[in-house]
Design a protein around this nucleic acid. Sequence first.
DNA 1: AAAACGATCTACT
DNA 2: GTAGATCGTTTTG
Length: 197
Amino acid sequence: MKTIFRSYEDEPVAMARRLLGQDLCRRTRLGFCVGRIVETEAYLSEGDSACHSAVGPNRKNASMFGPLGHAYVYTIHARQCFNVVTQAADVGSAVLIRALEPVRGIELMQQRRNTTLVRDLCRGPARLCESLGIGREMDGWDLSLGQRLWIEVGHPVPATEIRMTRRIGVTSAESLLLRFFVNGNPFISGTRRQNAS
DNA sequence: AAAACGATCTACT
DNA sequence: GTAGATCGTTTTG
């Protein structure tokens, strides 16, 4: 299996940038799905009170402190969010995958999401998890195994096409938002509605 | 035991 | 743009 990772020992910001354009792959009994990563968000272990690891290790966020290069799957609003754990164990930083451009297994995604709108399949962290069938059972999963859930080299994104949103104090005084996305890509979140199918 | 809270999403105006 | 749904986890009484 090819991988973009020379090492998982990266700062979340560098990882958030490098993940753009890579393919998130998912295989289950139901079939094979692939989505190209077009939007990410870095969560730093220090100076960010919105980061789930800020409260210290607990049962829920344990995998965030676990081995690097593993998955951290979190439940919120009755939905799931998928993260890639970065840096060494015990640090507690990760990159949230916020949007994918559907590449393979679109029919299965449509089935899982119960919609035919391709644009709405993986636009948003919870939607992409539903499309790929990523649940809490994948929390802590080793992405380097190349089975069930992993990341492969996709279409690289030129640095000039990468945009960043940086905001401070969104949800609380010391929170930090570092969002990266492929400029102009129709599958990123926050863009207006588009035609069906 | 009940209420409040979220790294969200949908439907509706 | 915003109200309401959603449900596991945390907080409150």
